[in-house]
Design a protein around this nucleic acid. Structure first.
Lengths: 136, 136
DNA sequence: CTCCGTGCAAAGCGTTTGCATGCCG
DNA sequence: CGGCATGCAAACGCTTTGCACGGAG
């Protein structure tokens, strides 16, 4: 939370960032670990995770995870989207995004596109109202 | 695999589905387990997971997880979307979805919307080409 | 009689964290 | 020198799976 933490520029951190910038495959932590290890054989997986978190905090990289790790289930089969509260993690339904908005990039990257999923982020009413005394 | 597996209609399975259909909160497996347990005190968490998988296979429910469990990292900070291969899990970039498509439901569900994330699904060129002998 | 489904518990897997040491600034 | 960062390994949380038993068809 301290806005300006004193960060050190360690070879591990620099190497992790450099390796990630060279890759376009959106590697997992383990995949990135394997690549970084070729340059820093003694680096540990824990260090990779810690630095990925630091780099994300500093806005130097992004983490793709779409919500928390645990899966959620939905008995509603009608097409619709979801919105997730960034404070408490609650998930609610959203009306489907108007038209199929982007059939355009139908063959981008050589993929055969079969579908998409859309998730909004926001703050739910409960968290919005109690914001003032938020500990977080 | 086998297209028409013989499914039994056990009280556990029926209760799990019924409970999920009554909920609009998109519960996690554990949350659902707690609710189902009020009706079937002896049910196990493993059974909940197994039946959720069965129900998903049969297209009776949906599982929200947005790709596999493990996080992926991206050093590209430019706004863009992603596409994930449903066969091999590979992730590639997609150009951003044209317009901000749906600022309309800006207050749906009472949420204050702050952003969204879009992920396409499809089959990557490699998997598309080798499809014929796919074991899967 | 078959074999699918269950409960229980242990294993898996990705990720996080405690601790002593190391090294940047 | 002070304290953030590292390496190692244990811990953690969610999910999956092996096993033996039980009940539906």
């Amino acid at each position: 939370m301290a806005p300006n933490r004193r960060r050190r520029n360690t070879p591990q951190r620099a190497t992790i960032l450099a390796a990630l910038e060279e890759m376009t495959t959106h590697p997992t932590a383990t995949e990135l670990y394997a690549v970084v290890r070729e340059r820093l054989p003694h680096i540990s997986l824990g260090t990779v995770y810690r630095n990925l978190e630091v780099l994300r905090e500093d806005g130097r990289i992004r983490r793709m995870e779409y919500g928390s790790a645990d899966a959620r289930f939905d008995a509603c089969l009608e097409p619709h989207d979801h919105i997730r509260c960034t404070e408490c993690g609650a998930v609610r339904d959203m009306p489907p995004a108007g038209r199929p908005f982007a059939p355009a990039p139908a063959h981008a990257a050589g993929f055969e596109v079969t579908g998409y999923r859309l998730e909004y982020y926001g703050v739910c009413p409960a968290c919005n109202g109690e914001e003032p005394r938020g500990t977080r």
